[in-house]
């Protein structure tokens, strides 16, 4: 089963980071990626541009609606994602727990809707 972790963080926390803290943060993600790789569950990840560059699109209601900004009106903003391949939600949750974003923000877990093999 393929799961995507959406990483929610408060942009204010990132803006207030010192250079050393930023380095430590990048190192933490690097270690996490290495751990996922070592376990053979890593599929893909990305680091996203700030939320000011976000565009939300919907076809709900029959017409295409484009909105400038993120989908939800909460303090946390989508800051990145991980895609992992694991057998079930319990394993996915255990990896989400280890994700650095879970420390300071939220990780949304979504099962993939793509038909598998």
């Amino acid at each position: 089963m393929r799961y995507t972790f959406l990483l929610y963080t408060d942009p204010a926390d990132l803006a207030n980071m010192t250079e050393a803290e930023g380095m430590a943060q990048r190192q933490a993600y690097q270690s996490y990626i290495e751990a996922l790789n070592a376990a053979g569950v890593f599929v893909d990840t990305d680091w996203l541009q700030p939320v000011t560059t976000a565009t939300t699109l919907t076809l709900k209601g029959g017409t295409r609606q484009v909105q400038d900004g993120p989908f939800a009106d909460t303090k946390e903003r989508l800051g990145g994602y991980f895609v992992i391949e694991v057998p079930d939600l319990d394993v996915a949750m255990s990896w989400a727990e280890k994700c650095p974003a879970a420390q300071t923000g939220k990780v949304e877990i979504r099962p993939s809707a793509m038909p598998t093999g």
Binding site: D88, L89, D90, I109, P111
Partner: peptide, 14 residues
């Protein structure tokens, strides 16, 4: 069903 919550006993520590 969709998120595949497992029909198995959780890990010992859980």
């Amino acid at each position: 069903r969709a998120a595949r919550i497992p029909f198995s006993l959780p890990a010992h520590e859980d």
